[in-house]
Design a protein around this nucleic acid. Structure first.
Length: 306
DNA sequence: AATCCATCCAACCGCTTCTGC
DNA sequence: CGCAGAAGCGGTTGGATGGAT
């Protein structure tokens, strides 16, 4: 009951590409562009499967690829993006010009994982590594939304990488408020990172991985004690999804999609151009399908990486 | 010099998602 | 709407390389 092979394997080369194969592939794509990968090998005179050609081109032969070591800035960006997106290497690669998903994935597994472990951070959860931190096992993916499901109305959803098991609201509140204090002081006072147990103490305070999704500027105003303000009550993403779909809407300002908020405008990821066209300040445009919240009117301008 | 071991990374594989009919 | 084919994605593998013994 297996799937049909993507190509006739009996007549295809495998393994490392030769210079001649590279040249053929480059010449063909220069002449014809990237088209149907399945038919490309035959047309280009290559004994390779289309998948292999695509991979070779994307990961190695593309002229816009950046070669060489990753910079410290790229390192930190990858870490932050990974904390937000999880193992979505293609999305992460979209934010690093000249880098491929495969390259970033390899780099993550060989360098950054170790780097985070040395910092005492679990690369999977971006939380401090502690032996007794059993609740972290509840997190199956770093993109998982967490928090309690209390249906209280608030203006901001915090997508936390905290435990997925129910935890009391006030604990989350305190934790978040402490982060706020740190940001306001623009300092790295470790004592203010409260985690309610010594072993949970943040070991890398500059890596705050709370993800906030604001619902709208007007409501944001109510909370505008500071740019890093996070409301008292944490909401589940699902609750906001339902609320927004059934009537919750942004109260002002156009909505940009997640892709644009991440700085990759005009990419294929961008979903805002159509919904933005002709919208006014009371736009009811829809947002990007972020974390499965398709068509939810979220304001990604307030999506922050801190 | 030979062997072992760890690391790196290109490439593969299988699954999911997208797209056209 | 459902199906099939194509493309895309992420996990994994295996060969090359370099350092340690």
């Amino acid at each position: 009951m297996g799937r049909s092979p993507c190509c006739e394997k009996a007549h295809t080369n495998k393994g490392a590409w030769t210079k001649e194969e590279d040249d053929r592939l480059i010449a063909y794509i220069r002449a014809h562009g990237e088209g149907c990968w399945r038919s490309l090998p035959k047309a280009a005179g290559l004994l390779r499967c289309g998948k292999s050609c695509r991979l070779r081109w994307i990961n190695y032969l593309r002229p816009d690829l950046k070669r060489g070591n990753f910079s410290e800035e790229e390192d930190e960006l990858i870490i932050k993006l990974h904390s937000l997106l999880g193992n979505k290497w293609s999305l992460i690669a979209g934010r690093l010009p000249g880098r491929t998903d495969n390259e970033i994935k390899n780099y993550w597994n060989t360098h950054i994982r170790r780097k985070l472990l040395n910092r005492g951070i679990d690369p999977a959860t971006h939380r401090p590594l502690t032996g007794s931190d059993n609740h972290q096992n509840n997190i199956t993916t770093t993109t998982a939304a967490a928090g309690n499901s209390s249906p209280d109305v608030t203006t901001t959803t915090t997508i936390s990488f905290a435990p997925t098991t129910p935890i009391s609201t006030h604990l989350v509140k305190h934790e978040v408020e402490d982060i706020k204090i740190i940001n306001n002081n623009d300092s790295l006072d470790h004592r203010k990172i409260k985690n309610h147990s010594p072993e949970n103490q943040e070991r890398c305070p500059d890596l705050n991985l709370e993800l906030r999704i604001g619902i709208g500027p007007a409501q944001e105003q109510n909370n505008a004690m500071s740019s890093s303000y996070i409301p008292h009550q944490q909401q589940s993403v699902e609750y906001h999804r339902q609320k927004l779909v059934t009537g919750g809407r942004t109260s002002g300002g156009a909505i940009i999609c997640f892709a644009c908020s991440m700085g990759i405008q005009n990419s294929k990821e961008c979903s805002c151009t159509s919904s933005l066209s002709g919208t006014s300040s009371n736009s009811t445009g829809y947002g990007y399908d972020f974390l499965g919240m398709k068509n939810v009117g979220l304001d990604y301008r307030s999506l922050e990486m801190k």
